[in-house]
Write a protein that binds this DNA or RNA. Structure first.
Lengths: 195, 195
DNA sequence: GGAGTTGCCTAATTGCATTAGGTTCCTTAG
DNA sequence: CTAAGGAACCTAATGCAATTAGGCAACTCC
C-alpha cells in the first residue's frame, strides 16, 4: 500500500481548506482523513487529537495574519497604515473565513507559537497607533478600541448581518475606518469627554 | 413512573443554564436530558433536535436582549441612551455568556420569532441614533458602526482578551463609549473625511 | 371507567473521537 | 547487501452524542 505522505502541515492545511469551504465545524478529524484518503486514526501520528487540530489551525491562521500585517505596514504610517492593516484582517476573513474564525477562537490552549503570533499582531496595532497623537497611557484603550471595531465589523459582515438591503458593506467599512481615523486623530479630545 | 413535567420552555431554560455555566458547546441534548433526569430521546417531544435547540436558545436570548433594551431606552436619549443600551448588551454577555453567544450565532435558521427579536434590537439602535445629528442617509452606516464596536468589544472581553495586564476593561469600555458618542455627535465631519 | 392522547421509555443505528496494538515500508549501520 | 529499528498507516474496539422507531403508562375527558 503506497503511503499518503502525511505530515502535520499537510493535515493542518487540509483542515484549513475544509474550514474555509464548509465552516470551522466541518473541519473534523474524520473529514480531514476522508479528504486525504486515509483512516481517521492515522492522523494521530501528526496531531494529538481534535483540540490539537484546532490549536494548529489557530496557529496557522494567526501566523498568516501576522505575516500579512507586517507586509501591509511596511512603509506606511498614519491613516494609510490603519487602512492597510485593517484591510488585511477584513480581506483575510473574506478569503479564508474558516481560518479567520479559527484565529478568533479564544478557547484553545495558548501554545508558544500562538502566543508569539498574537504578540506580533498586538505589536502591529501599536505600530499603527504610533501615527496618531495618542498618549502613552491611553494606548491600551486605543488598541482595544481598534481591535473591537475591527473584529466586530468583520464578524458581522462574515455572518451576513450587513447583506441584503441598504448600502453596501463596502461603504460602511470606509465610513467605519474614517470614523476610527478621526477618533484617533482627535484622541486628546476623546479623553476629555470620557470623564 | 412519575413524569418529569418537561415543556419546551423548561428544556430551553436548562440548555441556557448549561450554556452559561459550561459554554455553548456543552449545551447538548445529552447534557440537557441528563440534567433534567430524563433520557435523551424524551426531549424530541419538545425540541426537534440539536438545530432546534440552538434556534430556541437564540430566540430566548435575543428576546431577552430586546426586552432589556426596551427598558433601558425608556426615558433616555442622547449619550445616556447610548450608554444604557450598550451596557445592556455588555452586562447580558457577562451575566449570561452562553445565551449571549447563542444570540450572536448567525448560522441558525431564521424563525419568525428570531426575526422579530432581531428587528426589535435593530429598532433600538435606530432609536439611540435619533439622539444624534446623523443624517437619514447615513443611519445604516452609523448603526453598523455601533453594532460592530459593541459586539467586538463584548466578545473580546468575554474571551479574556482584555484580562491580565494593563488597565481594566472597565476603563476601556468607558473610553470606547466616549469615542462612539463623540463620533456620532460630530458625524457630519466624519462623513466629510470619508472621501 | 374506558378511549385516546401525550409523555417518557427502551432498543437500535450512525457518526466522530480516541486508544491499543499490529503490519509494512523506508532508512541506515554494519 | 542485509537486517534492525522506527515511522506511517492500518484494523479492531470502546465511548459518547444524535436520531429514529416503536412501546407502555399516565393523564384527560366524556
Amino acid at each position: 500500500m503506497t503511503r499518503a505522505g502525511l505530515t502535520r502541515p499537510a493535515v493542518l492545511e487540509m483542515a484549513a481548506v475544509l474550514a474555509d469551504e464548509r465552516g470551522l465545524r466541518a473541519a473534523t478529524l474524520s473529514a480531514v482523513a476522508r479528504e486525504l484518503g486515509v483512516r481517521t486514526p492515522s492522523l494521530y501520528s501528526h496531531v494529538r487529537g481534535t483540540d490539537d487540530l484546532r490549536a494548529g489551525l489557530a496557529e496557522l491562521a494567526l501566523t498568516d495574519l501576522a505575516d500579512r500585517g507586517d507586509r501591509a505596514l511596511a512603509g506606511r504610517s498614519g491613516r494609510r497604515a490603519l487602512a492597510a492593516w485593517a484591510n488585511v484582517h477584513r480581506d483575510y476573513a473574506r478569503e479564508h473565513p474558516g481560518r479567520f474564525a479559527a484565529a478568533g477562537t479564544l478557547d484553545v490552549a495558548p501554545t508558544p507559537t500562538l502566543e508569539e503570533a498574537a504578540a506580533r499582531v498586538a505589536a502591529q496595532s501599536l505600530a499603527v497607533l504610533r501615527g496618531y497623537p495618542v498618549p502613552e497611557a491611553d494606548r491600551v484603550h486605543a488598541v482595544r478600541l481598534m481591535a473591537s471595531l475591527l473584529r466586530g465589523f468583520v464578524e458581522l459582515e462574515a455572518g451576513g448581518a450587513f447583506g441584503g438591503r441598504g448600502p453596501t458593506s463596502e461603504e460602511s467599512w470606509a465610513r467605519a475606518l474614517a470614523v476610527l481615523d478621526e477618533s484617533l486623530t482627535r484622541w486628546p479630545h476623546a479623553a476629555l469627554t470620557a470623564s
